[in-house]
Design a protein around this nucleic acid. Structure first.
Lengths: 232, 232
DNA sequence: ACCATAAAAATTGTTCAACAATTCGACAAG
DNA sequence: CTTGTCGAATTGTTGAACAATTTTTATGGT
């Protein structure tokens, strides 16, 4: 007979389903997904009345959810006017890429842990496979995972979270671009090459390669990005 | 465990100034200041009833403020138990210094703008002056400004904000250390040396110097940091 | 038709009171 | 020493109310 030494082992995560997050966080999750997937495009006003009724939560609870997403920069609060799905300016995009150069650049310059390397590799192969099947949305997803994995090389939970928020914010831009293919295709191959440099331990080269990579990505994105402007 | 009985002391009159931002943000500002200054030390529970009455705002509004500060990691939400001033673990501190090495390191490696350089210089001289007068709290403040100014070298609003939050979080640790002098004194001179390297355009050297600087600062901080633990 | 402007409607900002759900301490029983 | 139970305290969430502000509509003069 097998004697269980520790009856508690492996039970830690299970409670996340039982004692679920607060209603406000649940609502925030739902809205975040809608925004990231482009169902709620930038500029959309989120009316408290409509949404609280649709989701069957009180206005107060919904407003707590709005605060959360506002802090993640997915929503914009305009006093006495309401909350809107954020519209990124060209300056915002430039700043996001500045941040990426810093925290991804730091990542690739570190000696990688095996686990992180595996995650990067998987993202690369996923992107290659998706590209073969002309599924450019999937390529975009794999590409996100690739860069997220690069940041994990820093071994910093806070940087990981920053990157998650940053990528979510970037989706606000990606989705308004019509041509997903031209946005993602050029980088499938470059991801593979960057991976090679990392695996070869050529850290400084990888860093410089990544920087020009991100320069190009930024240019490509800004080249024909003309966001709607809020009228005041 | 140190439970501070009266988290409300001195909070009654504060809401006097006229509301530019929303009430929730005003409340968040007040609480943030109290937390950063150590008036509300880590572990303090913030009771909704008490505080909403002391500040003359509704519980709903107060809860919106709690969400904001929770997202800044100054407060910790524990479901059905309440919100508490955050207690940083040693792992948290280590992570904060990991982030600092990344974003400050990137800063010093860039060619500085004149404005940013001036800000750094001013912080250095302020720290020197305060040290001469044995005002170690002022030294700590000047030191914060020094590192904040280093981050501005990146020319990224988002990194600036991240650094602001990061330094606020670190104050949670600084304030529980009894000896402010031993915490700040060693770095007054090193700030000056780092400034010299930056002004001399020796970017890579400055980067390495900063990294060992931060290594030492982290060790000094962790060396006798034993946070109270939350009991679950 | 044009435009200023006043009235009306809609929407957000904030408060309040209520109640359910959960935690916590004390105390009793096994 | 563990387990169970009661009750008080606290948080989670709701719904309604009202003020402040913005947006829309209606109005009237030129």
């Amino acid at each position: 007979m097998v004697t269980v030494r520790n009856a508690v082992a492996g039970l830690e995560g299970v409670r996340s389903r039982i004692g679920r997050a607060s209603v406000a966080e649940e609502v925030a999750d739902v809205l975040r997904e809608r925004i990231i997937e482009g169902v709620l495009p930038p500029g959309t006003q989120l009316l408290e009345g409509e949404i609280s009724e649709a989701l069957q939560v009180s206005r107060n609870t919904l407003r707590e959810a709005f605060r959360l997403l506002g802090h993640e920069r997915l929503l914009e609060h305009r006093r006495n006017k309401g909350v809107f799905v954020r519209i990124l300016s060209a300056a915002d995009v430039a700043d996001l890429y500045r941040v990426r150069r810093v925290i991804e650049g730091a990542g690739v310059r570190r000696t990688p842990s095996p686990a992180a390397l595996a995650a990067i590799r998987e993202a690369v192969t996923d992107a290659l496979r998706a590209a073969e099947q002309d599924d450019w949305t999937a390529v975009g997803t794999a590409n996100s995972r690739f860069h997220q994995a690069i940041v994990t090389l820093n071994q910093s939970p806070r940087l990981d979270e920053s990157m998650r928020h940053l990528l979510a914010e970037l989706r606000l831009v990606f989705h308004v671009m019509k041509n997903q293919r031209s946005l993602h295709e050029p980088f499938v191959e470059r991801n593979r090459e960057l991976l090679d440099l990392i695996e070869a331990g050529r850290a400084e080269e990888a860093g410089r390669y990544l920087e020009s990579y991100l320069d190009d990505a930024e240019k490509l994105l800004l080249q024909d990005y003309e966001p709607e402007r809020f009228r005041d």
